[in-house]
Structure formats: structure tokens, C-alpha cells
Design a binder for these strands. Sequence first.
DNA 1: TTTTTACTCATACTTTCGGGTGATTTTACA
DNA 2: TGTAAAATCACCCGAAAGTATGAGTAAAAA
Lengths: 161, 161
Amino acid sequence: MLLNFLIRNKHVIIYGISLAILLFVMRWLQLRLIIFNHAFEIYIAVIALIFTGLGIWLALKLTKPKVEIKVVEQVVERVHQVENTSEFKLNETALIESGLSKRELEVLELMATGLSNQEIALKLFVSLNTIKTHSSKVFEKLDVKRRTQAVEKAKRLSLIP
Amino acid sequence: MLLNFLIRNKHVIIYGISLAILLFVMRWLQLRLIIFNHAFEIYIAVIALIFTGLGIWLALKLTKPKVEIKVVEQVVERVHQVENTSEFKLNETALIESGLSKRELEVLELMATGLSNQEIALKLFVSLNTIKTHSSKVFEKLDVKRRTQAVEKAKRLSLIP
DNA sequence: TTTTTACTCATACTTTCGGGTGATTTTACA
DNA sequence: TGTAAAATCACCCGAAAGTATGAGTAAAAA
């Protein structure tokens, strides 16, 4: 349907509309900037910067991290706490068993670095509420109550370095 | 050296030069495009597109490639609770430098196990407020803002296992 | 002996966390 | 193409964490 089409191409449409609006604004701005010397160059530079930023934003937003987790075989369990010197080996088995999703693991990792939920949200380009949801699920899946416990347990299970 | 500097900032330099050239070309193009109606809009659109592309390229170029996790087969030996031969060596120097007192270090250690302030207070037979005071001092001395950061930093400094 | 330091505790206040609920949107897959 | 899981976001509310300030006490250092 048309509606479906519109929804599916939301990003593109928003992008197009933004571009149109920007063109209009720029056109309007030109009328009063034109009186200055080099206004044109400044104008172009501003546009270039804005759209470079937009491009970066687009790339970050639309790029999907192609992370795939495949399980072929599970052999044995047990964790070993080798005093790692720079060599961290993710315990795939424990990861699967924990049931953590990609995103949840990502949040957990950032959590372990000591970031607040707000900081994590900013880093991942999502809202604070989203991070709260993720972290809640992490706690649930790791069967802990606090982020400090989650980090401690995750390290013990070699889910994070 | 200068050469090194140039190489290291290759991307930025190329970007800057491209921008300059583009400005120049655009300026030149303007002279013959200006005669058409809406030439300006076309002009801007072209710039917008080019720089959007540039932004995308930049983002893709500067962003670390996405990771792909694959599990094929795990050969894990059973390590039976050899569970640390306790090879933790406290970094005395770092401890002195940090200026942490005995009690503060104690609180920090319990913190690292994921205990809440209330739990720590119960464990040490002191009031919650006392623990809050201690933890505040710990954060201050470690120059961090949150307990998760404190734990992370303390581990890095080998103040705790 | 005086001073300093560590430890203790309190009150008041702000911020962050975490639980609970519900909803929409993507994505993957059968 | 419909369904299930994952990801996103919102709002409320209570608990926990953290800040600021002040203060009393005991032990160590001067």
C-alpha cells in the first residue's frame, strides 16, 4: 500500500523534506547575506558542513552492525579466570546461555566502563528510556539487582573483559 | 616530523583540499549557471548531495568496521575450580598515591563485589551515612563520579583484584 | 599538649537507578 | 505473509546513590 511505502521509507522522506526546507531557508537567508563580501563562500561552507554532518548522521544511523552469533556445537562449560594480559576470549557458551542480545551485551560493556545510563544513551544514539529497558533486561537475564553486580558477574563469566 | 603529521592527518587534509577545490569549481560554475532559472537551487542541491556523500564516506571510513562473531566449535577443557591461586598483587605505590585510607579501601572492595551501600553498612556495622561519606571520599580520591567507575579504575590500578 | 587525620554520623537535597507497564517499530524467519 | 523476537520509547514511582555541610570522637603525629 501507499501508506506502507511511506512508512518504510520514512528516513528517506524525512531526509528529502529536510533538504527542501533547508534549501528554502538558505534561499531566504541569501537575501540578507548577499550584502556582505564573501557571503557566498560562507554560505556554501555552511551548507557543506551541515550536509557533511547529515551524511555522517545518516551513515551512522543506517549502518547496521552485522553481528551474527552462530552456534554449531557446545562442548563443555566452566569458566576459567586466567589472569588475562590483553587477551580476552569471549565465553560464547556462557553468552548463549545467558540469553543476552547483541544490544544488551553492548550496553553491558559500556556499563562496565562506568558510564551512566544517560551517557550510554548518548553514545548509542538512543533515548535514556531505551537504555533503561536494556539494562533492566540485562539484570534480569544475569539474575542480579544492580549494575555493579551485573558487571562483576559478566566479568566472571567472561562475557566482557 | 612534519611528514608524519601529514600522513597521520591524511583524511582531514584531503577533506580540506577537496572542500577548497569544490568551492573554487562551484564559484566558477556559478558564472554560467546563474543565467538559468533555479540555477541556484540546483547548485545548492549538488553541493548538498556531494557533501552528504562525503559525510557518509567519512563516517564509513573513520568508523571501525563492524564485528562479526562466529562460533564454530568450542574445545574447552574442563577447568575445575582451580579458581584463583590468588595471584593478586596489590599495587602499594598506587594505593599510597591515591591517598585512600584503610576503611575507604575496604568499602571500595565491597563495592566491587556489587554490594549496595546499605549492605556494606550492615557488613561493617556502621551506618548508611558513614558508607556514603566513605564512598564519596573514594570517588573524590579516585577522581570519578560513580561507583562503577571507581571499581573499574581501582581494578586498573590494581588496588583491588 | 596541641594539631592533624581517620572514622563516625546526621540532615537535607538532587540525581540516577531500577521496576513495572504498555506501546510501536524493525527485523528475522518459518 | 504472518508471527515472534528484538529494539525502541514513554511515563510513573519508589529506592538507591551521590552531594553538601556540619559535627563529635579517638588515635597518631607534631
